[in-house]
């Protein structure tokens, strides 16, 4: 088989299709989550300052929410790494083996 044919076979392979489908989906979902969280936060700052100014523990509600956005951003990268290290890499290995065959 020529290199091009090998590529065609792999691209049509159900394992590769599953791999790219999963990867696209998780990237998209996590990107949407961080975009929604961040832009909601920024829109609150822009359009509804008073909600974030509610007093909490001598500070304001905006403080725990802001720190929460930072922590959530990190947790999301953690979720992605965990998924990729376990499920994604296993699928990648499977596809790589098919290529070398």
């Amino acid at each position: 088989m020529s290199e091009q044919q090998v590529r065609r076979t792999i691209l049509d392979d159900p394992d590769f299709k599953e791999l790219s489908r999963q990867k696209n989906r998780i990237s998209l979902v996590l990107t949407v989550v961080i975009l929604v969280v961040y832009f909601t936060y920024m829109l609150l700052i822009a359009f509804s300052k008073s909600a974030l100014s509610a007093p909490v523990a001598n500070g304001t509600l905006g403080i725990p929410i802001g720190i929460g956005v930072i922590i959530l951003a990190w947790v999301l990268t953690g979720i992605y790494v965990r998924w990729a290290n376990t499920q994604y890499d296993a699928l990648v290995e499977k596809v790589k083996q098919k290529i070398s065959e």
């Binding site: 998780i26 996590l30 990107t31 961040y38 956005v69 930072i70 951003a73 992605y80």
Partner: peptide, 13 residues
């Protein structure tokens, strides 16, 4: 926060 939330974007995309 703005500087930080760029990092998940780097990761996912």
């Amino acid at each position: 926060i703005g500087y930080l939330v760029g990092w998940p974007i780097v990761m996912f995309l």
